[in-house]
Nucleic acid binder design. Structure first.
Lengths: 265, 265
DNA sequence: ATGCCTTTGTGAACGCGTGCACAAAGATGG
DNA sequence: CCATCTTTGTGCACGCGTTCACAAAGGCAT
């Protein structure tokens, strides 16, 4: 990467758009549920409903994978489950390591969603010597000194970081140095990685803040149209707890445009 | 606009793009770090670097909030912290409830990132009577029967769902019925909510599957080009990056997904 | 076999988000 | 007070993603 910037529009992946890739697991989940109920075929309309997306979008998504449907009938559930699993790489076993066995790391270790789709927790790693050897989710915690050897021995290419923010970049560097090329980052930090390494981040604080933004906007909307929550008792300390008694669908052009509801702190 | 009197010349209180809103917490975090180091001002270039985004994008994002910068100098850190906090609604206190106190729910309850930004865990709720009264993160667990009264009493407008998939929709309905208008969903389910209710989902399984897709693609790329790697130092010895040990499981597509992908059961 | 009906697959238009490039604005030094 | 330098704010173009709308394709009944 010493060479200049070579833009790599991740969309090149095989012609499959990134947005489509992000939806494939959603489809797979819905299809798996249908498969368990022994439903043989499903239409794009039905499946889209189950996955919570538009049917045209679903059809276009599938079109990137190939023509797996039958016109006039729909899609064969089992076949589609297999094709999507294969496309996502779930027909093979992915060993992952979790670094940082605090509350969150332990919760992830116990998380059933890992093993259910071809992901196997190869090791739990923590920097605290007092954690070493402890059993979490039936797996012994290893010390971070062994990180490199663990990654090598197990052929780990996916790492999950659940350390405090201060340690995240350092752990990330070690993981990458050991050969990990995909990282799921739960710490509230912006990780910098060399090219070729994928990082996805999950930050609940950010998610909450986004919700708060919309919540505030909703409260401001209702306030500005002179609507007081008639059924809701007094909100919590701090003010407009969130009105929203009976959310009406009165969707108009909106009285936006005027004062942005400045909240005195 | 030229006059520095009234901020907000453009009436864009509602025109803030969703993508921008999603980045505001990122900027806020970087700015908070600068503030703690008593840095008075920061340029778009520096701040963009700290937040991991393009500087032009950052400037455009800020332009939606108003003209808070000074040309030739940069942005006043403290002022920007305040403005973004206000825009995100973080100057007020947001009581939240967490429903489903399993491993993940307990981890979230302990997560410091909540309280640090105006979010306060008003209550922990679980359906298991054996959990009722237990202390988690210093908060007593309440039974789900009390859900509505808890929401009413505390003026809760944001709910976090960490239940198993099977219970998620039901819990969601009750939360919405009680007045909650924003939901953060950790269960692997597509929630259906009435209009006016915001739902954001966090699904670890999906994130891993997306990583697996790219990982598989990387492995395929390297394989097909005969290991003609870029200018990147050679990764792990054994794995060659995407190698991943590749222990294929012998079972068919059947066992996939009979586990609800959530931990507490 | 034929015509009808259902559903897929996709061409095309549209909107949003991103990044470039530059003029305007303000600080700074002489 | 003027020249210069720095940095913001934004017009513009481009590409991705979404949605509409419809022709093609296949099943099914007669």
């Amino acid at each position: 990467m010493a060479t200049g910037r070579n833009h790599r529009p991740a969309t090149r992946s095989r012609g499959i758009p990134e947005a489509t890739v992000a939806r494939l697991p959603l489809y797979l989940r819905a299809l798996t549920a249908l498969s368990e109920r022994s439903v043989p075929t499903v239409s794009s309309e039905e499946l889209a409903g189950a996955a919570g997306v538009n049917s045209a979008k679903l059809r276009k998504d599938f079109s990137y994978l190939g023509s797996y449907g039958t016109r006039g009938v729909g899609y064969d559930v089992e076949y589609l489950v297999y094709q999507i699993s294969r496309e996502l790489g779930l027909t093979q076993d992915w060993p992952v390591v979790i670094v940082g066995i605090g509350n969150l790391g332990a919760a992830l270790a116990n998380y059933g969603g890992f093993a259910s789709r071809g992901f196997r927790v190869a090791a739990l790693i923590d920097a605290d010597p007092k954690m070493t050897g402890k059993q979490v989710a039936g797996i012994g915690v290893r010390h971070v000194d062994e990180l490199e050897s663990i990654v090598h021995t197990n052929g780990v290419s996916i790492g999950v970081i659940t350390t405090p923010a201060g340690a995240a970049q350092q752990v990330c560097d070690r993981l990458v140095g050991a050969g990990v090329t995909s990282i799921l980052n739960f710490s509230p930090t912006v990780l910098s990685v060399p090219e070729g390494v994928d990082v996805r981040k999950v930050d609940l604080s950010i998610e909450l803040q986004i919700l708060a933004f919309h919540e505030q906007r909703k409260a401001a909307d209702e306030l500005s149209r002179g609507l007081r929550g008639p059924e809701r008792p007094a909100p919590a300390a701090g003010g407009t707890g969130g009105g929203a008694g009976g959310a009406r669908r009165g969707e108009g052009p909106g009285p936006d445009g005027d004062i942005p509801a400045v909240m005195p702190a």
